[in-house]
Amino acid sequence: MATRIPMSFTINGDRYEMELPPQRTLLELLRDELGLTGTKESCGAGICGACTVLVDGQPVSSCIKMAFQVKGREITTIEGLAPGGQLDPLQEAFVRHGAIQCGYCTPGMIIIAKGLLLQNPYPSEEEIYEAVGSNICRCTGYVKIVEAVRAVARGER
């Protein structure tokens, strides 16, 4: 049996204690061990942002982050944004503004925007582009994604 390291995490408010092999990525932990499949894998190399989650409020590409690197930390995935089915304002805005087409980049886009707004509730246009511009969406041309984030940043609830 390969080496396993004991570690603990808080994920979407729940506490987990487990033993994982050192090569297990955060993305694999979420999707394969915990069944939190809302977080997507696309490039697998930290380029596209589909796998973005929040670690202590900071956006992180979970496909290139090892699980042991985030032990003891607080992780938020797309499933954690709408506890009890009550949508986060960003989720509402993405739906209403037509910012979702195939939906595959959506969890990562919403999470990176959430990370931005947590740190900076009133971001400039440049800062919105910086956040959205670090993830890839192949469907929307970004126009409506930027609109949705802007709407929440300007107080649309």
Binding site: G35, E92, Y104
Partner: peptide
């Protein structure tokens, strides 16, 4: 009318199951 997509909410919540999400 500009209705939101019928599946947008499921996708926004990470609830939509793509092939690789199935077990």
């Amino acid at each position: 009318k500009p209705f939101p997509r019928i599946d947008a909410k499921a996708k926004a919540m990470g609830d939509a199951k793509y092939t690789a999400d199935m077990r």
